[in-house]
Design a protein around this nucleic acid. Structure first.
Length: 843
RNA sequence: GCGGGCGUGGCGGAAUUGGUAGACGCGCCGGAUUUAGGAUCCGGUGGGCACUGCCCGUGGAGGUUCAAGUCCUCUCGCCCGCACCA
């Protein structure tokens, strides 16, 4: 709207006063929450019945809801309404992922405290939720920053700790210099902090980890269950992330240290070609090995330089190979040869053994290194006996140079001969969960000088997050400043001890929230197994693909641990996953800095929530990214206007009756093609909308089908004869109520209103309309006629016409006849209900 | 480099099993209404032409088929994921 005489657009000239104008701003508040109340009751699960669980990823309360949320939650809402009305008992909860950096950073920026900022944001978001009319069971609402939730996050931490799945270790970690905290591997994207984009540094620190690597194989194996139910690319991303590779672990003996250094290799068959050996700069034996060689200084300098490299530079494969000779050799166990030991930063400390046997003839990196430092290259495998392949020859097939055995067999022999072992290696590392930040769940352990790390007993939970005055990240947790809070008696020996001051990664909070929804008020446990087993796993999970290796991997890991603890009866949390595409504006992600944000609430005020909900889904296929178009939303609003006029027009028909009616029967309609066309339009819409909302999840085409049906009805009503039959009016009424019923998941407010206009009560609890093929059966069908595959005409034939009749009719068509002029028939293809193709040749 | 996805009107997109390409919507054009503009409603709208009709048309080139946006081969372009992982 260019000017703003009105904030709400009402339907002008709708009716010359015969029925009220469509004014969403008036109508929507009236209906808001009506179905919500009804659905809280129905989400109580009847005994022994399996519930349906529809879940969308919960929002992070760092601001108001954006268009992405609108799309996400509307999709979930559409599915929820549809499944409820199809007879399922559906759980559809919502909450807030409210611990974490954004709220804390916002607090630091505005000078508020994280708790107040978070609670304020939640209130804002709740206004958004309220205005969009999603049917959510708010009695199950949770917020991960509230003690009644994080108490159980801590409780679960203690169970992990008991199992040895939560532990501390010294290790090189990812450090974000801006956020002043460590990060998990999953939160480092291309060497940058996932949150703020700073270049991540490596630091050696003592931190808390979850032993997700124990579950690497299960995480991989159970994906079989998700095949076809999760987007392929998410499964692929997780597979890549876990990075399983099969190979062998082989020990190399070093005589000066009299120590064996192990390496992992996927190519044990090439062992004879190992002409040198490389340690990561961080390898613990680098120091001892170098001592007394005269190379100490050069090696130490090299290691220092490597430590200063950012992870982007370090992992850049384009970089020239660098390295330094240690001055020592090591014995190749395959042939007893002494080969030089180098240190190079292309060997990563935390993959495999942090050391490798270099086979330049059959590995590109080793080859490049050998070239750079003039090291020997020896062929140990060839594609065909006697052939000198171009080096490096990296294909995993061929035969050994020595003996000519196929490489698979050669690998077995060699591994056995050198006392190695076939092993599996994973790229996945343990999940670093401690953060040196204030706004997170406190880790429920104490550090005692005598007893070490001591977990708190369950009855000491929750460990409340203390109030502090300074949230600034300073490289150690702001909690350390709360001295009274830190000082505590050791639960074991009662001497003075210190609380753990790091907090947990927010992804810990969101790794089990879907379980808490099932049993949100439980005061004795995070959830009751029996209750959770009835709802879980989530039947339909919806969210952004950005969580493919973060939240979605962590939640799977948690579920497996809980399964092994007998706390849940399933191993996968999300039976079906849908990842929705993002909404862009002007070709870019909406963001404050670009100033291209389209806020939902002003659009709700101007067009109505129903229009906005419908439009975000009409924009395109839900799994694809879509470009927000300001001009487009008006078209969706016009559709609802048209529907409004059509339904009111139908309600005013005398012959239509004043209540919700049953469909006219097929027999009744037999002699009234006008009425029949309307009922057929209704059933065509039922078929498409049901299919599109259900199995296909193509909401844009469902909406198109509803527009089509509305256009059909509107047109027919406009052309309705003065003396139209009572049957035609009943057909109109059936079509109007069918569209109203089908549009309800998308536009629940207007649907609820129109349903009452048609004499009904609560459309949200009406059974979902049933499709009946019988109404689509026609007496005559229109067939396309092709001659040699080219469209030449159309014919109308009786639906039960046989091939001969069809062909005769086709030949009779003027244009077809012209095309057949002087041609010899070759063959004819008749596709029932579709087309007839006459194949001819000149003659 | 490896893996996955996608290329269809001016735009977003539709075509579910190989069967009338362009549903639905935006935009645009015309009409009605209006003092005018906007809004609203109705109609038209892939391109070309010797325009009652014909030809071309789903990134490009081939192929299979009675029939290809859809299947196959090659190729170009874009997007996403992974990548010094031994």
């Amino acid at each position: 709207m260019t000017s703003d005489a009105t904030t709400t657009e009402a339907t002008a000239h709708a009716d010359e006063g015969r029925f009220p104008a469509y004014e969403p701003a008036v109508l929507e508040p009236r209906w808001r929450g009506a179905w919500e109340r009804a659905h809280v009751a129905s989400s109580e699960l009847p005994p022994a019945q399996d519930g349906t669980y529809v879940l969308e990823m919960l929002p992070y309360p760092s601001g108001r809801l954006h268009m992405g949320h609108v799309k996400n939650y509307t999709m979930g809402d559409v599915i929820t309404h549809h499944r409820r009305r199809s007879g399922e008992v559906v759980l559809h909860p919502m909450g807030y992922d409210s611990f974490g950096l954004p709220a804390e950073n916002a607090a630091i920026k505005t000078g508020g405290d994280p708790l107040t900022v978070t609670e304020t944001n939640i209130r804002g978001i709740e206004e958004d939720f309220d205005h969009l009319g999603w049917s959510i069971d708010w009695t199950r609402k949770l917020a991960t920053h509230r003690p009644d939730y994080y108490r159980w996050t801590q409780w679960l931490f203690l169970r992990f700790f008991e199992q040895g799945l939560a532990y501390r270790k010294d290790a090189p970690v990812n450090w974000c210099p801006t956020d002043q905290t460590v990060l998990a591997n999953e939160q480092v994207v291309d060497g940058l902090c996932e949150r703020c984009g700073s270049v991540v540094e490596k630091r050696a620190l003592n931190q808390w980890y979850f032993r997700i690597t124990d579950y690497a194989q299960q995480l991989l194996d159970d994906m079989e269950e998700l095949e076809g139910q999760w987007p392929e690319r998410v499964l692929t991303m997780q597979r890549n992330w876990i990075g399983r590779s099969e190979g062998a672990t082989i020990g190399f003996h070093q005589r000066d240290l009299d120590a064996t250094i192990e390496v992992f290799t996927t190519r044990p068959d090439t062992l004879h070609g190992a002409t040198f050996f490389v340690l990561a700069p961080e390898h613990p034996l680098v120091g001892p090995l170098t001592r007394g060689t005269g190379n100490e200084q050069a090696v130490a300098d090299y290691c220092d330089a490597a430590a200063k490299l950012s992870s982007i530079d370090r992992s850049n494969a384009e970089r020239e190979k660098t390295g330094v000779f240690t001055g020592r050799t090591i014995t190749n166990p395959a042939n007893g040869e002494e080969i030089p030991v180098w240190v190079a930063d292309y060997v990563l400390p935390d993959y495999g053994a942090g050391a490798l046997m270099a086979v330049p003839a059959h590995d590109e990196r080793d080859f490049a290194f050998a070239q750079a430092f003039d090291l020997p290259v020896r062929r140990s495998v060839q594609s065909v006996p006697g052939v000198e392949d171009e080096l490096p020859y990296t294909a995993k097939d061929g035969v050994l140079v020595e003996g000519g055995h196929p490489i698979a067999e050669g690998a077995r022999t060699i591994v056995e001969q050198v006392g190695g072992e076939f092993t599996v290696n994973y790229r996945l590392r343990d999940w670093l969960i401690s953060r040196q930040r204030y706004w997170g769940c406190p880790i429920p352990v104490v550090h005692c000088d005598d007893c070490g790390v001591v977990p708190l007993p369950d009855d000491a939970l929750p460990v409340l997050l203390p109030e502090v005055h300074d949230y600034q990240p300073k490289g150690q947790s702001p909690l350390a400043a709360a001295e009274d809070w830190v000082k505590v008696r050791c639960p074991q020996c009662s001497s003075w001890a210190r609380r753990e001051t790091d907090t947990m990664d927010t992804f810990v909070d969101s790794s089990w929230y879907f379980l808490r929804y099932c049993d949100p008020q439980n005061g004795h446990a995070p959830f009751d197994r029996e209750v959770v087993d009835r709802w879980m796993p989530v039947d339909q999970y919806i969210g952004g693909v950005e969580h493919a290796v973060l939240h979605l991997l962590y939640a799977r890991f948690f579920t497996k641990v809980l399964h092994d603890l007998d706390m849940v009866g399933f191993r996968e949390p999300f039976a079906n996953l849908f990842t929705q595409g993002m909404i862009y504006k002007d070709g870019a992600k909406m963001s404050k800095s670009k100033g291209n944000i389209v806020e939902p609430l002003p659009l709700v005020e101007r067009y109505g929530a129903d229009t906005l909900r419908t439009y975000v889904l009409f924009l395109g296929p839900p799994d694809q990214d879509a470009e927000w178009q300001d001009t487009g939303i008006g078209g969706t609003r016009r559709f609802l206007d048209r529907l409004w006029r059509y339904v009111h027009g139908v309600a005013a028909l005398d012959g239509a009756g004043q209540t919700i009616i049953a469909s006219p029967t097929v027999d009744e309609l037999a002699d009234d093609p006008n009425a029949r066309a309307l009922v057929a339009a209704a059933h065509a819409a039922i078929r498409r909308v049901s299919d599109d909302i259900g199995p296909r999840m193509q909401f844009n085409t469902a909406i198109a089908a509803l527009m089509e049906a509305t256009n059909t009805g509107t047109k027919a009503l406009g052309e309705r004869a003065e003396d139209a039959t009572e049957l035609v009016d009943r057909a109109h009424r059936f079509l109007a109520q069918t569209i109203t019923s089908l549009v309800q998941p998308f536009a629940p407010h207007i649907a609820s209103e129109l349903w009452t206009v048609l004499g009904g009560e609560a459309v949200w609890s009406e059974p979902w309309p049933e499709f009946d093929e019988a109404f689509l059966v026609q007496d005559t069908v229109t067939l396309a006629v092709q001659v040699n595959g080219k469209l030449r005409g159309q014919i109308e034939v009786s639906a039960d016409a046989d091939e001969a009749e069809i062909v005769a009719a086709a030949r009779a068509d003027e244009k077809v006849a012209a095309a057949l002029e002087g041609m010899q028939p070759v063959k004819q293809i008749v596709v029932p209900g579709r087309l007839v193709n006459l194949v001819v040749r000149p003659g």
